[in-house]
Design a protein around this nucleic acid. Structure first.
Length: 309
DNA sequence: AACGCTTGCAACCGCAACGCT
DNA sequence: CAGCGTTGCGGTTGCAAGCGT
């Protein structure tokens, strides 16, 4: 494919933006000279302070553009070239788990950027899935009944929340909400357990790259607390790897050894089950838990709700 | 050769989270 | 705690190359 880094055309946009609309700020494709200036400067002074970096480096670019160029193209760790079949398989599995969480997916694929994965998904994988009769958004069959010619009769799961995730268990599709309040991870399956709350307590759950921030900041604010910390990251990696490898059993076994049994908490005494019990029961899927954890933690403890109906 | 359509992807935009004061 | 600046993310755009006619 062409090398866009050497493109010289400039794109014009009518609406100025806070950082890129200033007079004298260059836009459009980067020249090799600009690349060299940026790369040399970052090698010397390091990443960060993007806002002021262009001025310090002597570039007529906005900080946002510099950051993007570095992250997606100039970083030494960025792997160029075609996506390998095993990488493609990993992207598919991760997308099934995480949805359009490109940065999270990219974090699990060494050398690949979120932008690259996003582009690859949009140009290759989504079309590939559609051609296979699979909804790229839900990873479910577009036409559940292959014998039916009325393909529109059963519509794919409609989902207004871009962060939402299909819930699948025992061959059925469920609707659930996942919340995180006061450090307690809570998942309620509205269909199967309309009056039940699943609460494991967030501390018993590992985290991952994309939503480390939430727990991390909390950790820093509560240094006295006996936090799991790095063990969580390792455990989540193990957990995610297990899911990726479709070998959740390994994870569950290790979880039993590493973590205490989840505390079952109920706000007003209603019957409750833990997430692991729910998984075992089949009311929620492992992927659902993984995703909900990611979604709930990432926004710094904000309440998240996923309407998957 | 010329034209129009499609494809692939770098770059841009808007927004939300985060961090500092 | 509010306000403001910065950073990072996901969606979208637009253009050059490829391809078909």
């Amino acid at each position: 494919m062409r090398n866009l880094s050497s493109r010289n055309s400039t794109r014009s946009r009518s609406t100025p933006t806070p950082c890129c609309g200033k007079v004298g700020i260059k836009r459009g494709p980067w020249t090799p000279e600009e690349d060299e200036i940026l790369a040399n400067y970052i090698k010397k002074d390091g990443e960060g302070r993007w806002r002021t970096l262009p001025k310090r480096a002597g570039l007529l670019r906005c900080g946002k553009s510099c950051r993007l160029r570095w992250m997606n193209y100039l970083r030494p760790s960025v792997k160029r070239g075609r996506i390998a079949p095993d990488e493609e398989d990993l992207i598919l599995r991760l997308h099934r788990l995480l949805g359009n969480r490109w940065s999270l997916i990219a974090g699990r694929i060494p050398g690949r950027t979120d932008n690259e994965i996003k582009n690859y998904w949009n140009t290759h994988l989504s079309k590939k899935l559609i051609s296979q009769g699979i909804d790229p958004r839900t990873h479910k069959p577009l036409y559940p009944n292959p014998n039916s010619s009325e393909i529109a009769k059963i519509a794919p799961i409609q989902n207004s929340n871009p962060n939402s995730f299909p819930l699948e268990a025992n061959g059925g599709v469920y609707r659930a909400t996942a919340t995180r309040e006061n450090d307690n991870f809570t998942m309620t399956n509205l269909d199967q357990f309309p009056n039940q709350v699943i609460d494991d307590g967030a501390k018993n759950w590992p985290n991952c790259d994309g939503f480390n921030k939430g727990l991390q900041s909390h950790h820093e604010q509560n240094k006295e607390e006996d936090y799991v910390g790095n063990e969580n990251e390792d455990a989540f990696s193990l957990f995610l790897d297990s899911l990726i490898n479709e070998n959740v059993f390994v994870y569950q076994q290790q979880q039993q050894q590493q973590f205490q049994q989840p505390k079952i908490v109920g706000p007003s005494g209603e019957p409750m089950i833990s997430s692991s019990q729910a998984i075992h029961h089949g009311s929620i899927s492992e992927a659902e838990v993984a995703y909900s954890m990611a979604a709930s933690g990432e926004k710094d403890g904000a309440l998240n709700s996923y309407d998957l109906a």
